[in-house]
């Protein structure tokens, strides 16, 4: 039986709840967990002031309630499972290195900034800057996998260096901006300025999109590695037409204003 945390008092201002994390709860009793520190705005309070806690502390945590104002859930987690039974606030999974966060609703902005490993699955939509680097940081996501079944907003994968981000719906502008490496797959439509400033890495889109003039068309081919990715995504529950899996893609190389070793692959049939 997992550990259940049920929100009984909705925070009026953002609640910083880094303690909702298997690493921080490891070995603690229910009483100890109730006394964990959270910040309601700038006021130090206890977890029990907002959450009702029950169940067994075995690394499997289920969090329920209106969590839109709850920040930093699963930050730096390295193992276990957190299930969010609804929407979640900003910075969920920040710098996490292992384990899994399953968000059954929507995620807010800054999902998994500077993530190092592990897996995040969002059944709904996510906000801006998924898997990105914090402002001023030169490196974003450095490992792990983020699967979003809905849409995302702008700057997905900003500065990402490794790992995989999959968007089942549409993405906003500047997808993969300043990307260093890694892979972003967008099944729906992408906004403008995709891959602006990217050095390396792969942005794969299953629909046509506008390409920056600093990208050049290399060829039209059927990449085997995309077949591998798309078969993997089928297993992850994404709906992908076999025509696309076996189809051809345009390979655009860029960004020429940077190293020019990145690629945008667009389904071409």
């Amino acid at each position: 039986m997992p550990l259940h945390l049920k929100l009984h008092t909705t925070p009026e201002v953002p609640l910083e709840a880094e303690c909702i994390c298997p690493d921080r709860m490891r070995g603690l009793s229910i009483d100890d967990i109730n006394r964990l520190i959270v910040f309601h705005g700038n006021r130090e309070m206890h977890l029990a002031d907002f959450f009702e806690c029950s169940g067994n502390n075995d690394g499997d945590i289920r969090v329920a309630g209106d969590l839109v104002n709850v920040k930093h859930v699963g930050s730096t987690m390295s193992f276990g499972l957190i299930t969010i039974e609804g929407d979640i606030g900003v910075h969920a999974g920040a710098a996490m290195s292992g384990g899994k966060i399953l968000i059954e609703g929507n995620a807010s902005d800054w999902l998994a900034p500077e993530m190092l490993g592990g897996e995040i699955e969002v059944r709904g939509n996510a906000g801006h800057l998924v898997g990105s680097g914090y402002r001023g940081s030169t490196v974003g996501m450095q490992g792990g996998e983020i699967f979003i079944h809905g849409n995302v907003k702008n700057e997905t994968g900003h500065c990402m260096r490794r790992g995989l981000i999959v968007v089942g719906g549409t993405s906003g502008d500047f997808t993969g901006v300043n990307m260093l490496a890694g892979t972003i797959i967008v099944i729906g439509e992408m906004g403008t300025r995709t891959g602006a400033g990217m050095k390396r890495g792969s942005i794969i889109s299953l629909t046509k999109t506008s390409i920056l003039p600093t990208f050049s068309l290399a060829c039209n081919y059927s990449p085997v590695f995309i077949k591998q990715y798309l078969h993997y995504l089928l297993k992850k529950g994404y709906d992908i037409d076999s025509k696309i899996i076996n189809g051809h893609f345009e390979r655009w190389c860029g960004d020429a204003v940077e190293l020019n070793r990145g690629e945008v692959l667009l389904y071409a049939d």
Binding site: R162, T183, R200, S202, F225, Q228, Y229
Partner: peptide, 9 residues
Amino acid sequence: GYQISKIIN
């Protein structure tokens, strides 16, 4: 030098 690494699953 033009090889690319990908981690899948």
